[in-house]
């Protein structure tokens, strides 16, 4: 007996919830005095460690591991910053002011300005406000994160059909969640999907900013972070 499609989609969201990684802490070096370089170094180090976790997380998305290695790489190279940003956004939802890069690393506008990150702070805050207005729940967050990864517009995709299928399954899972948990808001799935352009635009601005920081050569960056940055030229 096959499970009904409804149950299968509910199971996808439950699996995505189970696949959620453990919290990662920024752990800024207490022996180094505060400076813009220290902040940027801490953020790049945090992103590098989160990337390792994101790669492991992607393998838990149903269908991802069946894609060719090349397509798995292309999807991650295309969406990593969107995935990182969604994490920051979700963690920041309960806070009125400040971006929660990690539970031990919350930056407000003043701290962001001192590190040359005020513009990015404002852009990311706009994204936070968009999701806060929607009262995004955890199920929606994990499904949107998987949808950001399953991006058929990513460059160098070999098997577009498989990625389209992955996208359809995730979208159905989101729709199913909405009709069972938010049935009084029939537009909700659409509203959530319509946040993805702003997410992509913001991710692109953050990547550009870190490209510029990299070009200045004052901030040490780990290899995986550099590799992913280089993939987005």
């Amino acid at each position: 007996i096959h499970p009904s499609p409804k149950k299968a989609y509910t199971k996808i969201v439950s699996n995505l919830l189970l696949a959620e990684p453990e919290k990662i802490y920024a752990m800024p070096d207490p022996t180094v005095p505060d400076s813009d370089i220290k902040t940027l170094t801490t953020l790049c180090d945090l992103a590098d460690r989160e990337l390792v976790v994101i790669i492991g997380w992607a393998k838990h998305i149903p269908g991802f591991s069946s894609l060719s290695l090349g397509d798995q790489m292309s999807l991650l190279q295309g969406a990593w910053m969107e995935i990182l940003l969604l994490g920051v956004v979700f963690r920041s939802l309960p806070y009125q002011e400040g971006l929660v890069y990690a539970e031990d690393y919350i930056m407000d506008e003043v701290q962001s300005r001192m590190s040359g990150l005020r513009d990015l702070y404002l852009c990311i805050l706009q994204l936070v406000q968009r999701y806060r207005k929607l009262h995004m729940d955890k199920e929606e967050y994990v499904t949107l994160k998987a949808l950001a990864l399953a991006n058929s517009d990513a460059v160098h995709i070999e098997d577009i059909q498989s990625i389209q299928k992955l996208q359809d399954v995730l979208q159905e899972a989101l729709q199913e969640h909405e009709s069972s948990q938010h049935w009084e808001e029939p537009q909700r799935a659409g509203q959530l999907l319509l946040t993805l352009p702003l997410l992509r635009q913001t991710a692109s601005r953050v990547v550009q900013h870190f490209h510029a920081i990299r070009a200045q050569g004052r901030v040490p960056m780990h290899k995986l972070f550099l590799e992913m940055l280089e993939a987005k030229v």
Partner: peptide, 19 residues
């Protein structure tokens, strides 16, 4: 692949806890 060897390696490895 050569340019993206860490990503390649991490995808080929088992669970993230092995890393």
């Amino acid at each position: 692949t050569e340019r993206h060897k860490i990503l390649h390696r991490l995808l080929q490895e088992g669970s993230p806890s092995d890393i």
